[in-house]
Design a protein around this nucleic acid. Structure first.
Lengths: 147, 147
DNA sequence: GCAACTTCCATGATATATCATACATCCTTT
DNA sequence: AAAGGATGTATGATATATCATGGAAGTTGC
């Protein structure tokens, strides 16, 4: 039964956290989604990643990243500069407005995390992380034998 | 920094698990999504819930439940019988085909959970659950004072 | 320098999440 | 019974997730 309810607790916690975090951003009057913020943040730190590489860092697939980038570009938080040496790609640049949004969201994200983790010790966090990573790796190589 | 990466681990674990679980259902040749299965399962156990009540049990909102029910009904896994005493509602009934799908998916779900949690002790699961519940409650009452 | 392969991105189709709203139906109060 | 409020459902708009595919551009082997 523990086994049974664990994934409920997981879903429950993550969904609640996401709703909570988004609500706090909304309440601050900042028009960006958490997912868009994540992508923008990654691009700020490394502007020469492919969409697939960005996706790896935020656990999204390339298609999702492409659409998020399109939205960020449409809102002028991100600008695409063609790369001369590779016609398939463009270099992403966070615009001044994008930087403003990042700066505005940053303290909210920190506060969200702090609130969400209130009462959890460092040891708790480590335990949690280790167990979650274990679940991740357990799900990574499919169990079925070669056919 | 622990704080920092925890939510990454959370996202990572849950997304991986969902992909893993869905892949195993797909591989078994069963045409249903995990979310549809969840809703169908809840309805089987209790066929006189409102969409909002179903949503509470699977952490979805009423709109999502409505759409999932529409899909299940369209695939004849679920049938809607009007309730005589309340014209707004219909009673949901899992069809024979729906029951077949539930039965087929059940062992896969059990095996998915077992695989995902391999190597975690009961104590680990309890710890995990307690910590996740704590995150949930931490995010539940917004921190800001009444206005 | 061309064919085959690979990489990168865009996009269609479908499912879900969220918010908001519309609509019908019920219930309560007077 | 009529008005007002509450409840249950459907649906629009937008964002994301996933799979699949198409097309452009790069690379490799010959």
């Amino acid at each position: 039964m523990l086994n049974n309810i664990l994934f409920y607790s997981l879903e429950k916690a993550i969904k609640r956290y996401r709703r909570f975090a988004q609500a706090n951003i909304d309440r601050a009057g900042i028009a960006i989604t958490i997912d868009q913020w994540l992508v923008l943040h990654v691009i700020l730190e490394n502007d020469d990643l492919t969409q697939a590489e960005i996706g790896e860092r935020v656990f999204k697939d390339q298609a999702s990243v492409a659409r998020i980038i399109a939205l960020l570009t449409g809102r002028d938080l991100l600008a695409a500069v063609p790369l001369p040496h590779d016609g398939r790609r463009t270099q992403m640049r966070v615009t001044a407005e994008g930087q403003r949004v990042l700066d505005a969201v940053q303290p909210i994200v920190l506060s969200n995390r702090e609130t969400a983790l209130r009462g959890l010790s460092d040891a708790d966090l480590t335990t949690l992380r280790v167990l979650l990573e274990r679940i991740y790796t357990n799900c990574t190589s499919p169990p079925q034998a070669p056919e």
